[in-house]
Design a binder for these strands. Sequence first.
RNA 1: GCCCUGGUAGUGUAGUGGCCGAUCAUGCGGCCCUGUCGAGGCCGCGACCCGGAUUCAAAUUCCGGCCGGGGCGCCA
Length: 458
Amino acid sequence: MVAGRPVPFIKDVPIPSAMSIPLSERVAIPELGPDDDGREVVVAGWIQEVRDLGGIAFVELRQGTETGQIVLPKGKVDEDTVDTLVEANRESVAAIAGTVQESDEAPGGFEVLPDEAELLNEAQTPLPMGVVDRVDTDVDTRLENRFLDVRKPEVQAIFAVRAAAVEGGRQWLQEEGFTEFTSPNIIGAASEGGTDIFEVQYFEETAYLSQSPQLYKQMMMATGLDKVFEIAKYFRAESHNTRRHLNESSAFDCEVAFIDDEDDVLWVLENLVHAITSFVDENCTEELELLDHEVTVPDTPFPRVTYDEALDWTADDVEEEVAWGEDLSTEAEYALGDIMEEKGHEYYFITKYPDECKPFYAQPEGEELSRSFDLGKSGMEVTSGAQRVHDPDLLRQRIEEMGADTEDFEDYLKPFTYGMPPHGGFGLGIERIVMEMLDLHNIREAVLFPRDRDRLRP
RNA sequence: GCCCUGGUAGUGUAGUGGCCGAUCAUGCGGCCCUGUCGAGGCCGCGACCCGGAUUCAAAUUCCGGCCGGGGCGCCA
């Protein structure tokens, strides 16, 4: 064979297979029941547990979040078949061809009596962590062994809910006429300011990982695509270590053109949150049951609390008072979360922030305020957004005021000089809202493979 | 960037100077058991993050490193 050449596909020559049990005929365990008594089936999955009682043994075979029982009355079942299953290490993958039997004593009212069993892949022992052990596992150990962790039904449920949240949000945005787009994650200028960003080598140049699609989605506002969104990745090089921060996170990033003011954006956001929560509520019944958690679908519109009100209301509850003009402290955010909870609101907007604590692209209002807002959920900031500046002269002035060079922003500024409508938007953190919906204690639980200060693998 | 906190069998833990050739659970191995479903019973296996220092004596105190967890700032 010539090195580097692909092996030609030869028609009519089957790929050799060790499988004597046809996996393609596999039936899903949840689809079986006592009514299938007598049916010949193929089942396959992970051997979760073996209970060998001597003359009879039981194997719990897991498929996804469900398990089914394989019964092995010794003497009645072929000895090799019994040994294959009973001697396999936990979490090995096995296939079984056999007959469904109705049984009052079996979980689910049925069990499979095998004719044949085959170990498809034996799990080594000891396992780096148990899937069904009666001991807890640290989040760190779980993340190191995510493939095992996700075998747990309650962990699978988290990611099913996350997928549903994304699906529900995307569906609603599409119905509302939003166009989904994709912006580059590798960018040439560290443009947005604020947080630290990651540098990457881009051939002979230094490039950066984008901290948000902010500037790109604004550019789209000059195109006639009046409503856009991206399921965006945020890369942020902040070396924080908290239960609510990641260095790589995801968000619904939306932008809308031809708005009167930021209230038009708030409408989109509150309805998006409503769509996400109600989609999860309607489509994740089993998952929420597994997680023993209910999702509250908030009423719209959400209450609007101004920044001034937020300061005023929380003044007595915080040890260190927030000076006017500063962003709300974490302490004040939680205090406000409690106050809103008491009033019966999990979700609420904080509006009319001082201009000085918001970025250059936020539309100022009057002398000191800005048309910026955050969405809070029980004290957690899940979104921030604003009406944007669309006047190029004001934008240049604000870039200079923050001490940056307008030269670095020419790509961004260009669309503003050739017809840019008033617009605004927001970024809704997906991990944050999943974390909040499910009351997870660590945001790392809401991502499969989190990137944080000290975690770059797996 | 600043601050706090932790690292003991595969996993989760007890243990704050000698009683530790280290606790318990889970797991793993062996044996017994024909209806288990957190199976049960008996026997066994397996660990003090690394490097220095203090001390008659260190899992335990101190210093440095490595690796976790958390808080603040900042933010989604």
